[in-house]
Nucleic acid binder design. Structure first.
Ligand SMILES: [Mn+2]
Ligand SMILES: [Mn+2]
Ligand SMILES: [Mn+2]
Ligand SMILES: [Mn+2]
Lengths: 219, 219
DNA sequence: TTAATTATTTAGATTTGTCTAAATAATATT
DNA sequence: AATATTATTTAGACAAATCTAAATAATTAA
């Protein structure tokens, strides 16, 4: 099955939006891909034709087994390139997504496996997302909660759910990245803001909105 | 100036065929790009429109200054990725061209410069071709002659002019690569074949056709 | 220098991916 | 239940990149 770049992007976005078994809607996919609903409908017909999605008019889409397999391969390449850019070329985590968005379309089993090996077969990308192995198998995610839900006093950052450049830049400025240890000092009930402390640094207060998007694990 | 992948491939091929100031013909370019002359004419109009080539009907093409600048950037990316694949991911030199053909289209100044730096700002790619710097400046090629012309007894391999998979695989099998030192034992007049010796190995005889495509420098 | 051959261009189609505007279906509101 | 709103699809168009077949220009050979 040979997919075009456009088809790969659709498949990956459907995978991303699917989360379990939810059906993906035309508008949601159009928004995700920054395109128009009419274009999505057009592409849906092609992907159905290629047996990569299940689709009935007005009923939304879900990936077929074959489609999910494709999606996982694309996601694997995407996340491996992100690792490469951060670990080897010292990019910061908020810069790598767009580049990986292009690099992921170089389809070569050999390149992918060599890259993975070169990086030490990493299990998680710089945003904390799991990297599928060559067979599409995902490491089960580490137990984690969002920082605003966490009750532990000492936690380590495991992922960031919103990966917008804005948030990642904010975290960068505050020196918060994957693996950073945080000590929760105080939950302020008034606006649900949280005061935290990174070792050796003065405490800072972060908003509920930010805390919701930081995933942590007790340490 | 934002080029499509197709446009980039055309520009790069024109650059490759141009060699000095020769005019590139429609058929030659069609052959190089494995496409049809009619398609080349179509694209020629677009590239002329974008001021990347000079073109008059029936008169062939040459790159403009702007076009050459673009070409050098693409060539730079291509050759840097080839270095990466060989040096870091242990690909052999005959495998890397096709992958670089895709990777070269990821346009990011930052990625390119970081990659170059990571590789130690190499001046030559795995085939011995010079890598343009960020400003498009090429290291002047090292003085070299083809092995069949060379009169020196001890030489080092600096480049391979024919980069077909067939030749590169042949050289690989004979353990001849860039930097390999060869001792010329004998020129056989009958068929212009050459007997050579790589240190620690029994002498081998190579045909005129092969010798013509191996560039060497006296050592 | 005419005729044959080769190279190049044009005309007209096709495929892929996209769009806008209009039509229709599904859902929510009164 | 009828109506308004929202979601989705269809119809028709367009740009990019390609192709085949036919026309025309340039070159070579007789
Ligand atoms: Mn992508
Ligand atoms: Mn990621
Ligand atoms: Mn290319
Ligand atoms: Mn090369």
């Amino acid at each position: 099955m040979n997919l075009s770049i456009a088809e790969e992007n659709y498949i990956k976005s459907i995978y991303k939006l699917q989360e379990g078994d939810t059906v993906v809607t035309t508008n949601a996919l159009a928004y995700e891909l920054e395109t128009k609903p009419a274009s999505v409908t057009d592409m849906a017909k092609k992907l159905k034709e290629k047996l990569l999605i299940d689709y009935e008019k007005y009923k939304g889409f879900t990936l077929t087994t074959e489609g999910r397999k494709m999606a996982l391969q694309i996601v694997r390449r995407h996340r491996l390139w992100e690792c490469f850019l951060v670990d080897k070329l010292s990019f910061s985590w908020e810069e790598v997504h767009e580049l990986a968005e292009e690099l992921e379309h170089v389809r070569s089993e050999k390149l992918t496996s060599r890259l993975s090996e070169y990086l030490g077969n990493p299990l998680f990308d710089p945003h904390g997302d799991p990297i599928p192995d060559a067979n599409g198998k995902l490491t089960k995610p580490r137990p984690q909660t969002s920082l605003d839900q966490s009750t532990a006093r000492k936690v380590v950052v495991t992922a960031v759910t919103d990966q917008s450049t804005a948030l990642l830049a904010f975290l960068n400025a505050k020196h918060i990245k994957l693996g950073t240890q945080l000590e929760v000092i105080e939950h302020y009930e008034y606006d649900n803001s949280i005061e935290i402390k990174i070792k050796q640094q003065p405490p800072i207060t972060i908003s509920e909105q930010v805390a919701k998007n930081i995933m942590v694990r007790p340490v």
